[in-house]
Nucleic acid binder design. Structure first.
Length: 731
DNA sequence: CACATCTATCTTTTT
DNA sequence: GATAGATGTG
């Protein structure tokens, strides 16, 4: 009766993983070794052999994009029944499970999910309440500390008890009140989704057994990126059946900064001594040269199992190491090479990608690509759902669904302008906190708020009247319709239209896009018609957990630009990694924090995205950013690639080009030193100097013992000199 | 209270 | 070289 799933074309290791029996299973899957294939085939195999029904499968990924892809691929194998499976991200799975039992933890089922910005705003308001100095202690930093605690499943009391520094105590105080206010607002941040679900499973036996019974098999992708809370969640869900399959690669663990714990994968066998372990080392993606290069780089890490990717494909092209004078020349070189690859080599533009370490680096590339006439798309970066107008529109919906949401209220009460300024808002919020009523109630009786003038009372009354009308809209109306009503009746659209500016027009278009997203949501819901959650709430949940990178627009003829982090899970014929300079990549701050190994893994991830051609480019000088020019040596990772795999090219070194990009009159702008440099002498790395006999040059490094390295413009030579005695002057 | 102007800081990565 | 927040003005 079940459709036969073919296991042909799987290699012996893959087959072993797919057909493995019950119990814990770890698949160590190197880059490009077909791990998604193994996951999807295993699911299909479990279903087709009758070991599980679709509803009994929980498959977890980190991004919605990966989840959608997996679902699609299983559906291709076994057909429509696949739709009943839970194939989602950690966060959506938790949100979905939490809806039913959130009441037990003091939330209602309509709780709001706060994004990073909302959460930071809440932290800020809590800190204001505690009269803390947000300059001495930035809310973002506090948020990061609290987030770290939550991911370790450390609650406010425990955190407070362990706090032994001034900073720790401050954070502990904020943490405690933040938690209180979040529950009062009926809101959860991203971390809460995980923590609260763990709480539910640990505290309530009936909840635990219910979910343990529901899922017969739990499968996890990208296991190396799980944090402690996620690990506990998985253990709880797998229960005594322990049918837990995790797939991952410690070499691709790049989310340590988000508290991912690489130990989870390294210690899986300790955790489950009877675990079956399958290693996938055959790569089906890249040339041998690219693999050898990536292997050589990552081999410098200590925190890993020995592993060596191999392939049956040929050597292919050497890895291109390109050195350019500055980021503009780098961008021009990349644009030119992309054109060459397309016209002369015959690679499709959409099969080419450019990766960079930080989002800010896309700007110069974009400018240059526009001038070259190369079409491109940027994945990630400024997100649609973080635009002010979108957040406003969403906040309206949030407030209607969750009348306790003070953050949403604060956002929309004076947007569009209604004459309710920060004084009035502050009084309302304080009053709500004082009397302990939710914000909707307080706003409905503004005359009871102390200190409000009659004008303010009238303004709040009229706002609240509109909101009540909107809330009374029939429940079964389409989300798109409700959204449109909100934007009309609130006066939001009207205010934008009245502006008559280009920006306002852009905002209107964005809002129209949001409405069409809602329309699509309505349509899909009509088709599936399975959800147990009211449409408006489900819509909110979906978009709060949606990020730009989930968008899988495969438009044609477009070059792809993205950060290295966003590149995980993708592959391209040709890959450019720009900004391969020490201090940029590896990032100086990561080095400061002892994250060199993670940076190296990031490099490994980037390199292994390439099928045929790989370029690592560096600029000898980068900037000026706020007047600062960085002069860095090539990335240490480049040095780790064996010479016989690479081919070097690029412009001749010289300082003339560096100079020409400086604004007139800023010739003596200050210079940042490379992170490794020490400055025993009066010149710093990046200084332009003149030598009595060698002429103009630039300081490119310094070494212990007062030795500086200078590259001279005349012949491009690099010379080591004793700073104290060298006949040089700064210019 | 709203609006304009100035300023500091950003830029590591994101569910 | 943008943007959010702070400060000042009407």
């Amino acid at each position: 009766m079940e459709p036969q799933v073919t296991l042909e074309g799987l290699n012996p290791r893959q087959l072993e993983a797919v057909e493995s029996g019950d119990g814990p299973l770890l698949v160590v899957a190197g880059a490009g070794s077909g791990k998604t294939r193994v996951l999807t085939h295993r699911i299909a195999h479990l279903l087709s052999t009758g070991r599980a029904r679709p509803g009994e499968i929980l498959a977890i990924t980190f991004t919605n994009r990966a989840a959608a892809e997996m679902k699609e691929r299983v559906e291709a194998l076994i057909g429509p029944p696949a739709r009943a499976m839970w194939v989602t991200t950690f966060h959506s799975a938790c949100a979905r499970m939490l809806r039913g039992d959130a009441e037990r933890l003091g939330y209602t089922r309509s709780f709001t999910i706060y994004d990073e910005g909302d959460a930071v705003r809440m932290i800020k308001s809590v800190m204001a309440e505690l009269e803390m100095d947000t300059k001495a202690l930035p809310p973002k930093r506090v948020k990061a500390r609290i987030s770290g605690a939550k991911n370790e499943l450390i609650g406010p009391e425990e955190f407070m008890a362990a706090a032994d520094t001034w900073l720790g105590e401050q954070v502990a105080e904020v943490y405690a009140l933040y938690e209180k206010r979040m529950i009062e607002n009926n809101a959860m941040d991203f971390d809460d989704l995980l923590v609260r679900m763990v709480n539910l499973l640990e505290l309530f036996e009936d909840v635990r057994t219910r979910w343990q019974k529901a899922f017969h098999y739990v499968l996890v992708d990208e296991y190396q990126d799980t944090n402690h809370a996620q690990y506990r969640l998985l253990k709880l869900l797998a229960g005594e059946k322990r049918n837990l399959m995790v797939v991952g690669d410690e070499d691709q663990s790049i989310y340590g900064f988000r508290h991912a714990d690489i130990r989870n994968i390294l210690d899986f066998e300790k955790d489950f001594p009877d675990a079956r372990v399958v290693k996938l080392e055959q790569n089906y993606r890249s040339t041998q040269t690219i693999l050898s290069g990536a292997n050589a780089v990552v081999a410098n890490n200590r925190d890993r199992r020995p592993k060596e990717l191999w392939t049956e494909s040929d050597q292919g092209e050497p890895i291109q190491i390109v050195s350019l004078s500055d980021e503009h020349e780098e961008a021009r070189w990349v644009a030119g090479e992309v054109e060459r690859l397309v016209t002369e080599v015959g690679i499709d533009t959409e099969e080419i990608a450019v990766f960079y370490r930080t989002n800010a680096m896309s700007r110069v590339l974009e400018d240059t690509l526009v001038r070259f006439g190369v079409g491109y798309r940027v994945v990630g970066g400024t997100k649609f759902y973080e635009r002010a107008e979108i957040k406003d529109a969403v906040a309206y919906v949030q407030y209607l669904v969750n009348p306790s949401d003070a953050i949403a209220f604060s956002r929309i009460v004076n947007s569009p302008r209604r004459g309710i300024g920060k004084t009035t808002l502050g009084r309302i919020l304080t009053h709500a906190n004082t009397v302990g009523e939710n914000i909707w109630q307080v706003a409905s009786e503004p005359e009871k708020v102390p200190g409000l003038g009659s004008a303010a009372v009238r303004a709040v009354d009229s706002f609240q009247a509109t909101m009540s009308e909107l809330r009374d809209l029939p429940e079964d109306r389409d989300v798109a319709e409700i959204l449109e009503s909100i934007l009309q009746r609130s006066g939001y659209m009207e205010a934008l239209e009245a502006e008559r500016s280009i920006e306002a027009q852009g905002r209107i278009e964005n809002l129209e896009e949001l409405i069409s997203v809602a329309r699509e949501f309505d349509l899909n819901r009509g088709l599936e018609g399975t959800s147990d959650i009211p449409p408006l709430e489900e819509f909110l949940q979906q978009i709060s957990l949606y990020t730009e990178q989930d968008k899988l627009i495969e438009q044609q003829e477009l070059l792809t630009l993205m950060t290295l982090h966003n590149a995980k899970g993708l592959e391209f014929d040709a890959v450019f990694i720009v900004g391969c300079e020490d201090g940029v990549f590896p990032h100086s701050r990561a080095l400061d924090e002892g994250q060199e190994e993670e940076e190296r893994r990031l490099c490994y991830v980037g390199m292994t995205r390439a099928r045929k051609r790989l370029y690592l480019t560096s600029a000898r000088s980068r900037g000026p950013r706020g007047g600062f020019t960085e002069v860095n040596g090539p990335s240490r990772f480049i040095d780790e690639i064996p010479d016989d795999l690479i081919e070097r090219q690029g412009s001749a070194p010289g300082i003339a080009t560096v100079r020409s990009y400086r604004a007139p009159g800023s010739g003596s702008s200050p210079v940042t030193a490379s992170p490794r440099a020490t400055e025993p002498v009066a010149v710093a790395v990046g200084d332009d100097v003149v030598h009595a006999s060698f002429g103009e040059g630039v300081v490119i490094g310094s070494e212990p013992g007062g030795v500086i390295v200078i590259r001279f413009a005349a012949d491009g030579s690099e010379r080591k000199l004793m700073a104290e005695y060298a006949p040089i002057t700064r210019r």
